[in-house]
Simulated scan of single mutants.
Amino acid sequence: MAEHIVHAPFPGVFYRRPDPESPPFVNESDTVASGSVVGLIEVMKMFQEIRSEADGTVTEFLVENEAAVDAGQPLMRLT
């Protein structure tokens, strides 16, 4: 299976959880479908869902939870 990288569509703060008390949207080794929510990016107190553009298994997160990210920055790797 081909590798797919999920990229940040715009700059902001990347969150792996919908809120601090909830579990992450996905963990390493989870299987995701195209269109699945895999995280959030917050910009000016507005949260935008980040969705996978491919089916696959999460093999690695490339940024930490609550990390500032730039537009186009790789967030996670799927295989």
Rank of each mutant, 00 (worst) to 15 (best):
V58N: 03
P74S: 10
A54N: 10
A68V: 00
I50C: 11
M44Q: 04
E53R: 02
V69T: 05
D55E: 14
E42F: 01
A67K: 07
A68I: 00
T59A: 11
A54C: 13
A67V: 08
F47V: 11
E64P: 01
D55N: 14
I50T: 09
G56A: 10
E49P: 02
Q73H: 11
A54E: 15
F47R: 02
V58H: 04
A71C: 11
E53Q: 14
E64I: 07
G72Y: 04
E42T: 04
G72C: 09
E64F: 01
E64D: 15
V69F: 05
T59Q: 13
A67H: 05
E60A: 15
E60F: 01
G56C: 03
E66R: 04
E42P: 03
K45E: 14
F61T: 01
I41E: 06
G72E: 10
V69W: 02
T57V: 15
E66V: 03
P74W: 06
L75W: 01
V63I: 10
P74N: 09
F61I: 05
D70A: 15
A67I: 02
L62D: 11
T57H: 06
I50Y: 07
D70Q: 13
Q48V: 12
M44C: 10
F61S: 06
L75F: 09
I41P: 07
M44E: 13
E60V: 09
Q48T: 15
E64Y: 04
E64C: 01
E49G: 00
A67M: 08
Q48Y: 13
N65Q: 12
V43S: 14
A68P: 01
V69P: 05
T57D: 11
R51M: 10
I50P: 03
E64R: 11
Q48A: 14
R51L: 13
D55S: 12
A54T: 07
A71G: 13
N65S: 12
G56Y: 10
G56N: 06
V43E: 14
A54R: 02
S52L: 10
M46K: 12
D55I: 00
V63D: 12
I41M: 08
I50F: 05
A68M: 13
V63Q: 12
A71T: 02
D55H: 06
L75G: 09
V43P: 00
M44T: 05
R51W: 00
G56R: 09
D70I: 06
T57F: 02
F47A: 14
I41G: 00
D70F: 01
E66F: 01
D70G: 07
E49M: 10
L75D: 03
M44K: 07
I50W: 09
E60C: 14
Q73T: 03
G72K: 00
